[in-house]
Structure formats: structure tokens, C-alpha cells
């Protein structure tokens, strides 16, 4: 943990990171995220620097999307896969002058670092930058206004996944337009020694939101949550994260396995569902017309929908919206994504 939070903050262990799950109340934090803007403590995301003469070639080999021409003014979300096509992590890759900076998903830094070092070439240097850099996020339909008040209004209107090296309070930071929830989103990569000051300055404009509200909002727009969706022997196709893999790329670790899974047309597929008063555990059986067709991946209580919201992995012929299924005796309905339409889609940046 890089940032200090008030007494009463509820923390949880997510992978290798201890993160604030909620600062006050999930419902309140969620509503502020969807209606206004929140600050996010993303210090559970590990930053890994890849440099050296073969840095770009290496990144091109280990990332499932094409980063060959990723300049220092761009970032990109991509999966990192193993040889079997299983998800190692979902990363944000930042182009840098001397290589790339990878941001892990929450709590997945150690696993990602271990994988990268295992497949690295001799002329690539892989450095964990967590001790000297951390990440603070902003998310919400009016997050752009916070950027204007906090740093510079010009940065608010950067295109999606654009990056700018900028200065806040005489401190060099990497600023990026990103987003996990379908709302306007920004990230600030800041030196650890200045992180507390930037966090406090951010809190002069917005309230913080914890991991629970963030993940609920991610689920609502089908933004993959690796720690909850990739457990077990599942492949990219079954997860439905195809868009984080570029199969037109010549080569990358896991490509053959992913293509084999895609071409087999076999296996399960993931679909969202809502309904029921209780929240089923991962692995709960999903029934269609009384027959077992799959299992719950994970589910939560949705503040926005006022009912249970979750993902199920079911046989592909039944992975479609608008079906009435049963989970642990409760009637549920499969859904069309996004399950909640982000307010940012109808609010321009001004």
C-alpha cells in the first residue's frame, strides 16, 4: 500500500496486493462513480518496465495485441497469455522512449513478473517499478472536470488511450486517458514519494471509491476482471475476451492455442445474467429447462439493477441474451451487454 486512507476503510487481500475494498459504503461509492466522478487507489496494480535493445520485440511476443508501433503517446490494453493460451494477466501497455511500461491488473503483479522473466530474452531488462511508481485513477461521467481543476483541462479531452508526459506540482507524471467502467477514465502514474500529495489534492475535488464499486461497474460493461474470470482451465474464447487478443498478429505466446480453441467451436461461452435475491457462489450450477448447462463464474449484488448480477459460463448454443434460466432455484435472465449504460456515453467533455 502506497497511500494512507482514513480509519474505517475496509481492506482486502487481492492476489499479492492489499487494496481498499470500500472507504464508506459500496452503494454510495458506486452511485458517485456512475453519476459524478471518483478517485481510485490503483496502487495494487504493479508497474513493470521492459527495456533494452530487444524490448519492443519481446513485448510484441508476450503481449496478445500488436504493440510494435506503440509510441510514448499511446497506451493499450492487452492480454498476456501462456503457451496454452491461458490468461496470465490483462495489462495496460504504455509505449515509452526506451521500451514499454506494463501495468498489471490488481494483485497480479508477482504472477505477471514471474511469467515475463521466465520467457524473457537475454537482451531485455525487466524491472518491477512498484517501489518508485504508483497509479491513481479517476473515473466517472464528470471525471474530465476533475482533470481540468487538478492538472490541465487540455488533458481531459485526450483521445481514448492517449498518453501525455506532464507535470503536476513540479512532479513529472505520466497521464493517460483510459477507463475500466465505460465512464470517462484517467490514470496518473506518479512517483511514490509524491503519490500521497497527489491523492490528497485529488480528494479536494472527488471522493474515493474502493475495489468493490470499481469491479461492479466493470462487470456492468463486460470489462474483464481477470482475478474473477480466469480461474480454472478456461481459455480466452470461453472468457469472451477475444477483443484483447489480435489474431491477425504474426506471432505471440499462446496464439496457436487460442486459434485452436477458436477453430474447434467447442467449449463453453460466457453470458451475463440477472435475477434472484441471493448471490450464488462461483461454480453454482446453471439450469435451462431443468438441464445442467454450465456454472456461475461469479456474481454480485448490483446497486444499479437492484438485483443479483453475474456471469455464467454455459454451453455455446445457449450463450445468448434473453433466456430464462435457473440458478440455485432462482429464476434469472441472460442479458445484453452493457448491463448498465454508462452516463458518459451521453455527456460530452466541455
Amino acid at each position: 500500500m502506497t497511500l494512507t486512507h482514513p480509519e474505517g476503510t475496509v481492506y482486502g487481500q487481492v492476489g499479492d496486493a492489499t487494496v481498499p475494498l470500500r472507504f464508506t459504503d459500496l452503494s454510495a461509492e458506486y452511485k458517485v462513480l456512475r453519476d459524478r466522478a471518483v478517485a481510485l487507489d490503483l496502487s495494487g496494480h504493479t508497474l513493470i518496465e521492459i527495456s533494452g535493445p530487444a524490448a519492443v520485440d519481446f513485448a510484441q511476443r508476450v503481449l496478445a495485441r500488436d504493440v510494435e508501433y506503440l509510441t510514448s503517446e499511446r497506451c493499450m490494453m492487452s492480454l498476456v497469455l501462456d503457451d496454452d493460451g491461458r490468461v496470465v494477466d490483462q495489462v495496460l501497455a504504455f509505449g515509452r522512449e526506451d521500451g514499454l511500461l506494463l501495468e498489471s491488473s490488481v494483485g497480479a503483479g508477482a504472477r505477471l513478473l514471474e511469467h515475463l522473466r521466465a520467457v524473457a530474452d537475454d537482451d531485455v531488462e525487466i524491472v518491477d517499478r512498484s517501489a518508485d511508481l504508483t497509479v491513481i485513477g479517476l473515473e466517472g461521467p464528470y471525471a474530465w472536470g476533475v482533470v481540468g481543476r487538478l492538472i490541465d483541462g487540455e488533458l481531459a479531452s485526450l483521445p481514448f488511450e492517449a498518453v501525455s508526459d506532464t507535470v503536476w506540482n513540479d512532479v513529472e507524471i505520466i497521464f493517460a486517458r483510459t477507463g475500466f467502467t465505460g465512464e470517462y477514465g484517467y490514470q496518473m502514474i506518479v512517483p511514490v514519494e509524491s503519490a500521497a500529495d497527489l491523492w490528497q489534492a485529488t480528494l479536494e475535488h472527488v471522493t474515493p471509491s474502493g475495489q468493490e464499486a470499481l469491479e461492479l461497474a466493470m462487470l456492468e460493461v463486460r470489462q474483464p476482471i481477470p482475478r474473477l474470470e480466469t480461474a480454472g482451465d478456461v481459455n480466452v474464447i470461453e472468457i469472451g475476451a477475444n477483443w484483447l487478443v489480435d489474431v491477425t498478429k504474426d506471432e505471440f505466446v499462446g496464439k496457436e492455442a487460442v486459434l485452436a480453441a477458436f477453430e474447434s467451436r467447442q467449449g463453453l461461452r460466457t453470458v451475463g445474467f440477472s435475477g434472484g435475491d441471493t448471490v450464488p457462489e462461483p461454480g453454482a450450477r446453471v439450469l435451462a429447462g431443468g438441464e445442467d448447462i454450465g456454472e456461475v463464474v461469479f456474481a454480485v449484488r448490483s446497486v444499479g439493477l437492484g438485483t443479483t448480477l453475474g456471469l455464467a459460463r454455459v454451453e455455446s448454443g445457449l450463450a445468448a441474451a434473453g433466456l430464462e434460466l435457473t440458478v440455485e432455484g432462482a429464476d434469472v435472465t441472460t442479458l445484453t451487454s452493457p448491463y448498465i449504460v454508462p452516463k458518459s456515453w451521453s455527456i460530452p467533455i466541455i
Binding site: 477507463g179 463486460r222 477475444n242 477483443w243 489474431v247 477458436f262 453470458v271
Partner: peptide, 19 residues
Amino acid sequence: LEVEPDWITDDQPLFGRGL
């Protein structure tokens, strides 16, 4: 687009993220 149509998933976001 260069991808096979079936590579696109039914739930995939179309703008910004995704496609």
C-alpha cells in the same frame, strides 16, 4: 476489418474499447 466475423463476440464493446 481483417478479423473473421465470428472472432467478434456478442458482448464485445464496439467503440473506444473493443472493436
